[in-house]
């Protein structure tokens, strides 16, 4: 692949600082039929997440008599990218992302409370611009909170990467394509536990430490946005009647 200059005069191509997130907005409960749902716009990413359950685990052999099982399906709409028409449904990449996303939520949902059932999480990428797995996890986290399924924390995810010797936060599509490293992470904000960690490219330990620092710092802003999205409908209702 031809090399592309990603940093010009100390700025990124979209004008962001190295540790700056793209613009994020989250809406809770856009899908009426779901137990819980959320919609996120993260930069140019547009992603819907919905949760159904706990419900009877089907087929039956997938049920665990001692705890709920979490199932996750991450898919990308065929019109989601600027390039060719994609194929709908699951490819190998989607299967892997679905699996690691599922594991993030297995960590926080109180599974013991609903033995024999399944909790189904659907993440649908309507428009993609890099970092969809992180945005999808952040979104699904809000969908779960809105569903009332008990969790011990509300995870968020974001990625960091590297261009030359510079560590950058929240890579967009073009940065992802031409950067020297990409490392998405999901974090339980209360205890700073890492529940998703993937990386490819080249990083020194020092780069890693810088990346983690950026991820944790940006997490405070992301968590705040998640909470605001959940509170908004209730605060609005209260406001309407205070007048």
């Amino acid at each position: 692949m031809e090399k592309l200059e990603l940093l010009i005069n100390g700025k990124r191509l979209d004008g962001r600082a190295m540790d700056e997130l793209r613009k994020i907005s989250i809406t809770a409960s856009p899908i009426r039929n779901a137990t819980g749902s959320a919609y996120i716009e993260w930069g140019n990413n547009k992603i819907l997440a919905a949760v159904y359950g706990p419900r009877e685990a089907l087929p039956r052999h997938t049920a665990d008599p001692d705890r709920a099982v979490v199932k996750c399906r991450y898919t990308m709409a065929p019109f989601s990218s600027l390039e060719e028409h994609g194929r709908p449904g699951m490819n190998r990449r989607a299967i892997e992302i679905s699996k690691v996303t599922k594991e993030v939520f297995e960590n926080v949902i109180l599974l013991d409370l609903f033995p024999g059932t399944s909790i189904d999480i659907f993440v649908e990428v309507l428009q993609s611009d890099g970092g969809t797995r992180a945005a999808g996890i952040t979104c699904a986290s809000v969908a779960l909170a809105a569903s009332g399924i008990p969790m011990r924390d509300m995870p968020y995810a974001v990625s960091a990467g590297k261009v030359g010797e510079t560590v950058i936060l929240d890579l967009n599509k073009i940065e992802d394509n031409y950067s020297d490293a990409d490392m998405p992470m999901a974090i339980n904000p209360r205890n700073k536990e890492v529940t998703l960690l993937q990386m490819d490219g080249e990083l020194t330990k020092d780069h890693f430490k810088q990346a983690v620092e950026m991820i944790l710092k940006s997490g405070e802003a992301i968590t705040k946005l998640q909470k605001e999205a959940l509170r908004l409908p209730y605060e609005k209702a209260q406001e309407r009647y205070n007048r």
Binding site: S37, A50, Y52, R55, R73, D120, F122, E124
Partner: peptide, 15 residues
């Protein structure tokens, strides 16, 4: 033309 009845849209739709 293709239509997808996404499982996130309704409890009866499956993958």
């Amino acid at each position: 033309t293709a239509a997808e009845l996404l499982p996130l849209a309704y409890h009866k739709y499956d993958a």
